[in-house]
């Protein structure tokens, strides 16, 4: 156990596993801070994983793939946003519908593009990039500073989201849309516009999180590769009390347990305990995290409350 925890490869794996979760958790956090629950997250991660991979497979550079994934996510975000914000439809039902539609669209398009493949074709994914000087630090260097560019981008994204949310007028508008939309409207800002915009950007980030799986972690697109990560991110937003910094900590903690369970499977404990039990850990932990935070959570006041201009 101690041996695992002091190895650089373990901590490198923690950052790697956390990266897609950080992108998607930031995406969901933006949506929810603006007052919209986005259960489309799971499917949007699937479409991001597929669209990013497909774009690179067809010849785009890797960052082009990331951009395509963002746009594909934003498009499904637009669908979710339009249905639940101006039309005020059930955020639960529409979100689940968006997840089903986005997932089915990715699978349909994959089969359409590659009808007869048995082994999924590969692309050349992001390679790890060692930060000069810093990566030479013993232990810390190979753990923190020999990651793929998309992992650095995940942490930069979290910093950017925190900055925009708390230090800019735009972030104030997003938070107001989720806390007190009437006050925002009184300032002459369109609540509908802010909410739909937030859902689009947030969904774009979710899709980028999905594309991490195909463009950085693996080199192919598999069915069911997202495997509940989206739902885990919804739990991480609650666990992080709707704050970017705490949510990143939650993602790291979660990734730590995930990296640990993979390694514990190879120890003598793994020989006795069935491997399914280890694989259950992430989901069980997410539920426990929700229970632990249930009393203290600072839910945005207008989360899931549709806003109609002029109504009280």
């Amino acid at each position: 156990m101690i041996e695992i925890l002091i190895s650089a490869s373990f901590w490198a794996a923690v950052l790697r596993i956390a990266s897609p979760l950080i992108f998607a958790t930031m995406g969901e956090l933006i949506c929810e801070r603006a007052g919209v629950l986005n259960l489309g997250i799971e499917g949007i991660m699937v479409i991001g994983a597929f669209a990013g991979w497909m774009a690179v497979y067809l010849g785009l550079p890797l960052w082009g793939g990331v951009a395509v994934a963002f746009c594909a996510g934003a498009l499904f975000g637009l669908l979710h946003g339009v249905l639940v914000v101006p039309f005020g439809l059930s955020q639960h039902v529409v979100g689940l519908g968006v997840t089903m539609l986005a997932t089915a669209t990715a699978y349909f398009a994959y089969r359409l593009a590659l009808p007869q493949v048995t082994t999924p074709p590969k692309i050349v994914p992001f390679q790890s990039w060692e930060v000069p000087v810093l990566s030479d630090i013993p232990l810390l260097g190979p753990a923190l500073f020999a990651q793929t560019p998309l992992t650095y981008a995940a942490f930069a994204c979290a910093g950017l989201v925190a900055f925009v949310l708390y230090r800019t007028p735009l972030g104030l508008a997003v938070r107001a849309a989720g806390e007190n939309p009437a006050a925002l409207e009184a300032q002459g800002v369109s609540v509908t516009g802010v909410r739909v915009g937030a859902v689009m950007v947030g969904s774009g980030l979710m899709a980028v999180g999905g594309s991490f799986l195909t463009l950085s972690a693996f080199s192919s697109f598999f069915f069911e590769m997202v495997n509940g990560r989206g739902w885990i991110c919804i739990a991480l937003v609650v666990f992080g009390a709707w704050r970017p910094g705490k949510a990143v900590l939650g993602a790291l903690l979660f990734a730590g347990f995930d990296a640990l369970q993979i390694r514990l499977q190879q120890t003598p404990i793994g020989a006795v305990v069935p491997y399914q039990l280890f694989l259950m850990l992430p989901y069980v932990l997410s539920i426990l995290a929700l229970v632990a935070m249930s009393r203290r959570a600072q839910v945005p006041a207008a989360l899931m409350v549709p806003y109609a201009k002029g109504e009280r």
Binding site: V238, Q276, L277, L279, M280, Y283, S286, L290, S294, A297
Partner: peptide, 29 residues
Amino acid sequence: LKVRLGVDEVVTTLLLNFIMALFVSYLLE
């Protein structure tokens, strides 16, 4: 968990699907 502690049931019921799938896999192996 919902009525006692206010834990949102959407996420917990969703996550239980994945836990159950692994449990069934364990039983069948």
